[in-house]
Design a protein around this nucleic acid. Structure first.
Lengths: 141, 141
DNA sequence: CTGCGGTAGTACAGGCTTCAACTACCCGGA
DNA sequence: TCCGGGTAGTTGAAGCCTGTACTACCGCAG
């Protein structure tokens, strides 16, 4: 699988040029697309197929770097919302071209339109299956 | 990228059913294909695009589990060879069907022959480029 | 209103990977 | 022969992820 090589490379480029990891970048992207740049921790976790524990840690690091702040949810006393800061938006805007260029350079430009489309079809399907299997863990039991 | 989901799933299946990680499985596969079931650490590292440090740690874990033993290289005083044990071969033979089934179930069976071929073409190309760039790190400098 | 199962998030310990020393050894040139 | 640069591998610390346990809160049934 060259996929690890690719992810690793994209991660490294973001770290070197903008001091954020690929996961942090993805969180910023999702927050930027959300209403008011804010999202509940659990939604974030599900959206990225990360464990809640992982999101807690990642958001903690991002909070230290002033990319987000944590706010208690008004609606649900258990809830916490991650909110993108100005600095977070600034870093996202700076980092996006790096990421886009990386994906082009290391992936898109190397494949024909047809092959790239096939790639999309395959991983949509793979994700669908694996995500559908997880929620209730009803596999074989 | 659903690729992380897939790797994670394959890793989990190997851990649950055979108590080895995906990386350990891959090392066993490579050793089994090598002359006498033995390989130099550096060759192993290059073959899997892992850091030497990583291979050192992984082999150390595998040695604790009796899957391999370490032997000093006769030819090169600096060298160390990882040698597959009987137990290692036994575990590989047991684990291989799990892995093959996993790949079929979570990937191959979900794609058409054509799309799957496209996948192969793309990641061969991606790997080639990234590996060609690395060795001398001559990128832009 | 009280109890209770379920959900949200965090804390902590353990495991894997990385990075940067560091040791040991190889080999070619002076 | 001896030196110096390069290679092989290991070590230990630090970072990130996982699983588990735990607290706090929700909401419904009784």
């Amino acid at each position: 699988m060259g996929t690890e090589l690719l992810n690793h490379q994209l991660d490294r480029e973001l770290r070197e040029e903008h001091d954020i990891s690929f996961s942090e970048y993805e969180i910023l992207v999702r927050l930027s697309e959300a209403e008011d740049g804010r999202m509940r921790m659990a939604i974030l976790a599900d959206a990225m197929s990360h464990s809640r524990s992982r999101v807690t840690h990642t958001i903690a690091r991002m909070e230290r770097a002033d990319l987000v702040v944590r706010e208690a949810s008004r609606a649900d006393g258990r809830g916490v919302e991650a909110v993108m800061t100005e600095e977070g938006r600034r870093v996202l805007i700076a980092a996006a071209p790096t990421h886009v260029r990386g994906v082009r350079e290391h992936l898109v430009d190397l494949a024909s339109k047809q092959d790239f489309a096939a790639l999309g079809r395959i991983f949509d399907e793979v994700s669908d299956r694996l995500l559908r299997a997880k929620p209730d863990e009803a596999d074989i039991r």
